[in-house]
Simulated assay, not measured.
Amino acid sequence: MRVVSSIRELRAMLKEMRPKTIGFVPTMGYLHEGHLSLVEKAKEMSDVVVMSIFVNPLQFGLNEDLEKYPRDIERDCRLAEAQGVDILFFPPVEEMYPPGSKTIVSVKEITECMCGASRPGHFDGVATVVTKLFNIVQPDYAFFGMKDAQQVAVITQMVRDLNIPVEIVPCPIVREADGLALSSRNVYLSPEERKQALVLSRSLKRAQEMVECGERDATVLRTAIESVIQESPLADIDYIEIRSYPELVPLEELRGDCLIALAVRFGRTRLIDNIMLVASQEDIACSVR
């Protein structure tokens, strides 16, 4: 595995490798099995796998955890190399945002709900850095985990609107054996918070079971999810949303491709999780991703 930190060096390296297909896995590091599953999918579909590790300051708001966000580049390098990453791009902030940078990429409407409502400006930061990374790497495929389903919707919309020649490949959520969705931020949780955080996947499973039994009323489902989460005294609900996907239009009744998403704080740690459903009047098919 080759580790590079400059845009010029990375572009020169990739130029030598084309016309091989390039698969790209953008991350903020502190890798876990969810990230590594993206690499595995990238290896299936690509000749060359590029991973980036960049903690993007533009997507962190005031009083968020930019400075405390977990970092361990030596560990990440070992994991990435063992998983089969060919090139690891690890740029400093000044390489990605030189002095005098003035351009922001902004996707409208679908960024104004859910995490966008809770974290103003977050998706402008995501869209900007991902656009820059796509311009630098020029991948054929880019791989994103569905744990942040809204992010996948935003990036897919951005790629379509800006005619960026890359195929976005959504990949399933990877969970611990007890159901907790993998996240770099899980390291923040105390043992008791970690235990109580299991109400997230438990509440979504309850909603899934209700849908499989024929429930389609979004209010009923939301109330059921809330009641399960409130079994945890440490849980502080940010949002519980039921929306169409990828349009992210609020639903009163489940129909078509649907997203049930939630964000909950345990102490200072904000966790997100979701399930995707496909619903019709005649039957309901559910899948947890």
Rank of each mutant, 00 (worst) to 15 (best):
M1P: 05
I7L: 01
R8M: 07
R8K: 14
E9C: 13
R11I: 01
M13R: 11
G23E: 02
V25N: 00
V25E: 00
P26S: 07
P26I: 04
Y30H: 15
L31Y: 06
E33S: 12
E33K: 11
H35C: 06
S37D: 11
V39E: 04
K41G: 06
M45S: 09
V50P: 00
V50W: 00
S52F: 03
S52H: 12
S52G: 12
V55G: 06
V55R: 00
V55C: 02
N63V: 06
E64K: 14
D65W: 10
R71K: 15
E74V: 08
R75P: 12
C77N: 09
A82N: 15
Q83F: 07
V85M: 02
P91D: 12
V93M: 06
E95M: 06
K102T: 15
T103G: 04
S106C: 12
S106D: 14
E109F: 13
T111S: 09
S118A: 11
P120H: 13
H122W: 03
F123D: 08
F123I: 06
F123V: 05
A127E: 02
V129D: 00
V130A: 01
T131D: 13
T131V: 10
L133S: 06
L133Y: 03
L133T: 08
F134I: 13
F134H: 09
F134G: 04
F134E: 03
N135L: 09
N135W: 07
N135H: 14
V137L: 01
D140N: 15
G145Q: 05
M146L: 10
A149V: 13
M158D: 08
V159T: 13
L162M: 13
N163W: 05
I164S: 04
P165G: 14
V166W: 00
P170R: 03
P170N: 06
P172D: 08
I173V: 15
I173G: 03
E176Q: 15
D178F: 04
S183M: 04
Y188H: 13
P191W: 01
E192A: 08
E193H: 12
Q196L: 05
L200I: 14
S201M: 00
R202E: 08
R202P: 00
S203F: 02
K205S: 10
A207R: 02
Q208F: 01
Q208N: 14
Q208T: 14
V211N: 01
C213M: 10
D217P: 13
D217L: 07
A218I: 11
L221N: 05
R222H: 03
T223Q: 09
E226N: 14
S227Q: 15
I229S: 01
P233F: 07
L234C: 01
I237N: 04
I237H: 07
E241A: 12
I242N: 03
I242A: 01
R243I: 08
S244N: 12
S244C: 14
S244H: 07
Y245Q: 05
Y245G: 03
P250K: 11
P250H: 12
L251H: 07
L251Q: 09
E252I: 09
G256Q: 14
I260M: 09
I260D: 01
L262N: 03
A263V: 04
R268K: 15
L271E: 01
D273M: 03
M276W: 02
L277A: 13
A279L: 06
S280D: 11
E282F: 07
D283P: 00
D283I: 00
I284E: 02
C286H: 02
S287W: 09
